[in-house]
Every structure is written in structure tokens, then in C-alpha cells.
């Protein structure tokens, strides 16, 4: 600076102090402008096959809910009696435990006993409450109950936590999010509503037990399967999808078409769509971004 009037201008500096820089206007845009900008720094390249495989778990859950719906409909139309329902319940319970025992290497006898105890309490509670559920919605018309049930199921499907199992695998306790709680509650209320339209309290007990077993434990069981072997998970899902498609076909032709379209949309169209719109992904990062803390804040 000190009086050295050299022909070359002093270099522009990216600083705010010291007033206007000699030789440069305030709106001077230097070559280094936006030098520190980073584009698409943390974009993950996705592969169609991978996305499709991941989307299978959504289709799988859709099929499970469809199966529940089918069982509900059959029971409401008196095509399934309480004995076969109870048989299904026992079958589900046993197969669920078998899956847990076979896939979970960490499962101790104590934990198993703990599970048994919990489920015993749970079944007893249901058994006691069944007569109350039976008369719960007597004063309300069936149509409103059915429409509310369908809406609740849709809410359940929308808010369900597909990324992780709603019920945690043993050892990984973390607070579930608000939406997954709402989703679970919606499914439970829907089951109560459906059960309350049934004629005998044994029926009510059986259907309640069935729905709650599925809604509470299916995520855990499918999570265990997926963790154990991905191929088994795919096979299991495809099997469930075919089973549910078949049963829905028997039930209603139009529903079958809708369900089929939904499954195709979820497993094939959506992954392609995601890959297609990937190229429009545009992230900008730079020094103006809020710094991220590199440690966990434990409140």
C-alpha cells in the first residue's frame, strides 16, 4: 500500500474490513466468486434393481394388510367360523415364534420366556375385554363402521414406518416416531371396530387376536427374516403377494385389479420414476451452510 504506485493493481482480497478496496468497486466480482461452492456433494447413485428390491418390503406389507382385510371380510360374511380363526391364530403365533427362534442367534431363553409371558398377559387381557368390544359400536350403523375402518387402514398404510420394523428387534430400543405411533394406533382401532360387528364374543376374541398379532408382530417377523437372508425375504414377499392376490381375486374382481395395479405401481413404476427424476437432483453447498455438529446432542 505505502505509496507504491505500481502499475499492477493490488490483488483483490476476499475480506470485509478496511473499507473499499483500492481499485475495485464494491460490486466487483472476483474470479474466485463461488469458488467454494460444491454441487451434488452427497448424492447417492441409485440402481434400478436395488431400488426395486428395496420396494419389495412395501409391497410385502401391503399384501399382509390385504390378507388381514380378506380374513376380516370372510369373518364378517360368516364364511370363517371361530374355530378356524382360532386355528389361524395359533398357527400364526407358532410360526412367528419359530421364525424368531430360527433367525435370531442372540435369543436367550430368558428373552423367550419374557416374550411368552408378555403374550400370555396380552391374550388374557383380550379374552377378558372381548365381551366389551362386542357391544362397543352397537348403536352405530355398520356402513359408517366399515368406512371408518377403511379410512383408518389407509392412514395406517400411509404412516407405517416401512424403513424399519415398527416393533424393534430385541436390543435396539429407540423412540418410535410420532407417525409410526399414529399408524399403529389406527390399525388397532380399525381391528376393534371390525371385531365389534361380530355376533359372538369368541369370534370377537379370535379376530382381535388375529389382527393384533399381525399388526404388532408382522413387522418384527419380516424384519427378522430380512436380516437373516435377503433371498428368503424376497421369496417370502413374493409368496405373500401371490397368496394375497389369489385371495383378493376370489373375493372381488375389481378389487383384484386395483390391488394388482397398486403392487405394480409400488414395485416397478415408482423405482423407475425415482431413477428418472434423479438426474434433476441439484444440491448446492458452500460456506454459507449452517455447520453441522460432529457429535450427538443428548438432551
Amino acid at each position: 500500500m505505502g505509496g507504491s504506485s505500481s502499475p499492477t493493481k493490488s490483488r483483490w482480497k476476499k475480506v470485509a474490513y478496511g473499507g473499499m478496496q483500492p481499485g475495485y468497486d464494491d460490486n466487483h466480482t472476483d474470479e474466485s466468486f463461488l469458488e467454494d461452492m460444491v454441487m451434488n456433494a452427497n448424492v447417492v447413485k441409485r440402481d434400478v434393481m436395488k431400488v426395486m428390491q428395496d420396494s419389495i418390503s412395501i409391497s410385502q406389507y401391503l399384501s399382509i394388510v390385504a390378507l388381514v382385510g380378506v380374513v376380516w371380510t370372510y369373518t364378517l360374511n360368516y364364511m370363517l367360523d371361530e374355530n378356524s380363526l382360532l386355528l389361524i391364530d395359533v398357527g400364526l403365533l407358532v410360526s412367528g415364534f419359530l421364525v424368531l427362534i430360527l433367525t435370531e442367534e442372540m435369543l436367550s431363553l430368558y428373552l423367550l420366556f419374557h416374550y411368552f409371558l408378555n403374550i400370555a398377559f396380552f391374550i388374557m387381557g383380550l379374552y377378558i375385554l372381548a365381551p366389551i368390544y362386542k357391544t362397543l359400536t352397537r348403536s352405530i350403523s355398520s356402513d359408517s363402521i366399515y368406512s371408518v375402518t377403511v379410512s383408518l387402514l389407509i392412514i395406517h398404510l400411509f404412516l407405517h414406518d416401512y424403513s424399519r420394523s415398527a416393533v424393534r428387534a430385541p436390543g435396539t430400543w429407540k423412540n418410535p416416531s410420532l407417525t409410526s405411533c399414529i399408524s399403529l394406533n389406527a390399525s388397532v382401532v380399525a381391528s376393534v371396530f371390525v371385531a365389534s360387528r361380530l355376533p359372538s364374543w369368541v369370534n370377537v376374541f379370535a379376530i382381535m387376536l388375529f389382527s393384533l398379532l399381525v399388526f404388532l408382530f408382522a413387522p418384527l417377523v419380516t424384519y427378522c427374516i430380512r436380516k437373516y437372508s435377503f433371498r428368503l425375504h424376497i421369496l417370502f414377499s413374493v409368496g405373500l403377494m401371490i397368496l394375497s392376490l389369489g385371495l383378493v381375486y376370489v373375493l372381488h374382481k375389481l378389487l383384484f385389479v386395483v390391488f394388482l395395479v397398486l403392487l405394480i405401481f409400488v414395485t416397478i413404476v415408482c423405482p423407475y420414476w425415482l431413477i428418472m427424476i434423479q438426474e434433476y437432483k441439484f444440491e448446492i453447498n458452500g460456506p454459507w451452510d449452517e455447520a453441522k455438529l460432529c457429535f450427538d446432542i443428548t438432551d
Binding site: V15, A16, N27, F33, L34, D36, M37, I284, P287, W288
Partner: peptide
């Protein structure tokens, strides 16, 4: 007509956000 930012980083940010031509943006701390 003209915009002012309080630092050069802020100017980069404003230009990106608003799509203004950089020569319209002044840096006055």
C-alpha cells in the same frame, strides 16, 4: 435496482438464491 450484502460469502449466497446478476450486488459490511 441494486442489492447490498454484508459480506462476500453473503453475496455468493444471495446471488445463488435470487438469481441476480453478480454485478448488481454490492458488498458493504
Amino acid at each position: 435496482s441494486q442489492a447490498i450484502c454484508v459480506s462476500h460469502t453473503s453475496k455468493e449466497n444471495t446471488v445463488l438464491r435470487s438469481g441476480l446478476p453478480p454485478e448488481k450486488v454490492f458488498v458493504i459490511p
